[in-house]
Structure formats: structure tokens, C-alpha cells
């Protein structure tokens, strides 16, 4: 039977992938994509918990929905920042943005 462990396992791996992307990629947008993956992994967890642990008030779904909403907002703002940064610094490679070094 497909139990919670399966879903959680998938989400763990997805989370790992997303984190790897965040840590490894040079392009800012690529990093954002990695973040999205991590959020999705979290969402899988929440929804899996609703089904397998506590379906009362479908709390997990509520959380997942809020997360989706917030992810959207955050992607919007983040991408706006990327555009702005691109205009000023001529680059979207994060390793070239080290004005705070020191």
C-alpha cells in the first residue's frame, strides 16, 4: 500500500533537489525555481499529513493553499527584485553580487 512514508519520501527527495538547486545555481531565477521546488515538497508533506494523520478541518490543505499563495507573492516580489538588480548590476549571477562582502 502506498502509505505516508512514500509521499514523505518523495517530498524529502524533492526538497533535497530544490535545496541543491538553491545552493548550486548561479542564476537568480534558477535559485527561485529551486525555492519553488522546496515549497512544493513542503506542500506534499502537508497534504499527505491531512490524509494520513489528521483530516479534521483539512488543515493540511489549508496550509498548502496558503503556502501556494505566499509562494506566488514571493515569486512576484523576488522576480521584481531580480529585474531591478539586473538593471543596476548588469548581471543576474548571484556570485557576482557581493557588495556586502567584508
Amino acid at each position: 500500500m502506498i502509505g505516508p512514508a512514500h509521499y514523505l519520501g518523495v517530498s524529502a527527495l524533492l526538497f533535497g533537489l530544490g535545496l541543491y538547486g538553491v545552493l548550486t545555481r548561479r542564476n537568480a531565477v534558477a535559485i527561485l525555481m529551486g525555492i519553488e521546488l522546496m515549497l512544493n515538497a513542503a506542500n506534499i508533506n502537508f497534504v499527505a499529513f491531512t490524509k494520513f494523520v489528521d483530516p479534521t478541518f483539512v488543515r493540511g490543505h489549508v496550509a498548502a493553499l496558503i503556502i501556494i499563495t505566499l509562494a506566488a507573492c514571493e515569486a512576484v516580489v523576488g522576480l521584481a527584485l531580480v529585474i531591478n538588480a539586473y538593471r543596476h548590476l548588469e548581471t543576474v549571477n548571484v556570485d557576482q553580487v557581493n557588495l556586502m562582502k567584508g
Partner: peptide, 13 residues
């Protein structure tokens, strides 16, 4: 991921 949601009986999500 969406498909997995379906399997998890989370149609709205």
C-alpha cells in the same frame, strides 16, 4: 505534484 495531490484526495489543492 498536482497528480500526487489527486492521489492524496486533495482535489481543490
Amino acid at each position: 505534484v498536482a497528480g500526487l495531490y489527486v492521489l492524496l484526495n486533495a482535489e481543490f489543492v
